[in-house]
C-alpha cells in the first residue's frame, strides 16, 4: 500500500516525539543514580592508584565510600602550586573539579586537584599524593590517577581508564598487569629534571633496571604514546606543587 507523504511525515513526527519523550524521561529518572554510580567509580579509580583492584572490587559501595572518607583528604592547587579554595565566587572542592572540562582551558587557568592518601583517620600521616591525569589516546580521551610516594619521585601506583580505545589493544591500559609496570618507577632523573615514565614501543622486554621506562603494549603504540604525553604534561603542570612538597620535606629533614 502506498501512503501519502502527509501520512509518512505525520507518522514520523509522532514516532519521534514518543521515542524522544521516552528517552528523556528515562534519562531524568535514572540521572541521579547514574551520577552516584559515576562518583563511586571515580572514588574507586582514585583509590585504585594506591590499593589493588582486587581489594576494591571486594568492597561494597558503602565500604568504598567509608574507606575513601577515612583515607583520602583532598585539596586543589593552581599551576603555581598555590592552594585554591574559591573560584568565581564558588567554593572549590577536589571531588567536584571536572578534569575533562579543565583540560579544555589553558594550562595556567586550570584547577589541579590533589588527593592525599593518609593513614586511617589521620590526615597528617601522609602516605602518598594522588594526582589526576587527562589526555588523548588513539580514538578518544584517556585519563587516570598516579600516586606519588612522599619523596615526590617514586610512583606508588597508577590507574588508567579510557573512553574508546580498541578492546584487546589500547584498552589494555585498564588491566592491572599493565598498570603494575609503573609501580616503583621514578619521575625525576638524577639531576632533578622531570622525565616522567615512558612506555616503550613493543612488548615483552625487561625494563626493571631503568626507572623511567616501562614495557609497552603490543599493537597499541599510539595509546602508549598518549599515556606518555599525558603523564609528562600533567606531572609538569603539578611540578610547582611537587617542588613545594619536596622542599618542605627537605626543611623537615634538616631539623
Amino acid at each position: 500500500m502506498q501512503q501519502s507523504n502527509a501520512y509518512i511525515i505525520t507518522f514520523s513526527v509522532i514516532l519521534t516525539v514518543i521515542l524522544g519523550l521516552l528517552l528523556s524521561g528515562t534519562s531524568q529518572v535514572l540521572g541521579p543514580l547514574q551520577r552516584e554510580a559515576e562518583a563511586l567509580d571515580k572514588k574507586k579509580q582514585i583509590l585504585g592508584a594506591v590499593i589493588s583492584g582486587d581489594e576494591i572490587s571486594a568492597m561494597s559501595p558503602e565500604e568504598v565510600n567509608a574507606f575513601y572518607t577515612s583515607h583520602i583528604a583532598a585539596t586543589v592547587v593552581d599551576i603555581n602550586g598555590q592552594q585554591v579554595t574559591e573560584r568565581d565566587g564558588a567554593a572549590v572542592t577536589a571531588e567536584n573539579v571536572d578534569i575533562a572540562k579543565n583540560y579544555k582551558m589553558p594550562a595556567e587557568d586550570r584547577l589541579y586537584p590533589v588527593f592525599i592518601y593518609h593513614a586511617e583517620g589521620n590526615p597528617d600521616a601522609v602516605e602518598s599524593y594522588i594526582l589526576p591525569l587527562y589526555g588523548a589516546g588513539l580514538w578518544d580521551a584517556i585519563w587516570g590517577y598516579i600516586a606519588l610516594d612522599t619523596d615526590m619521585n617514586t610512583v606508588g601506583g597508577i590507574t588508567l581508564a579510557h573512553a574508546g580505545e580498541t578492546p584487546g589493544l589500547g584498552a589494555r591500559i585498564t588491566e592491572a598487569g599493565v598498570q603494575q609496570r609503573y609501580v616503583g618507577k621514578e619521575i625525576f632523573d638524577e639531576s632533578g629534571a622531570l622525565v616522567a615514565v615512558e612506555m616503550q614501543k613493543g612488548e615483552g622486554k625487561d625494563y626493571s633496571s631503568d626507572p623511567h621506562k616501562v614495557d609497552g603494549m603490543s599493537g597499541a603504540t599510539i595509546t602508549g604514546n598518549g599515556v606518555n604525553a599525558m603523564l609528562k604534561a600533567y606531572l609538569g603542570h603539578y611540578s610547582a606543587f611537587i617542588e613545594s612538597k619536596k622542599s618542605s620535606q627537605a626543611v623537615a629533614a634538616a631539623f
Binding site: 500500500m1 501512503q3 509518512i8 507518522f11 514520523s12 521515542l19 528515562t26 535514572l30 547514574q34
Partner: peptide, 28 residues
C-alpha cells in the same frame, strides 16, 4: 508503518531500546 520509511522506523525503535538498556546498565 509506512512501507517507504519502514527501515528508519525499525532503526528508531531498536536504537531507543538499546539506549534504554545502556542507560539502565549505567545506573545500576
Amino acid at each position: 508503518i509506512p512501507t517507504r520509511v519502514r527501515i528508519i522506523v525499525q532503526l528508531a525503535v531498536v536504537a531507543t531500546l538499546v539506549t534504554l538498556v545502556s542507560e539502565v546498565l549505567r545506573a545500576f
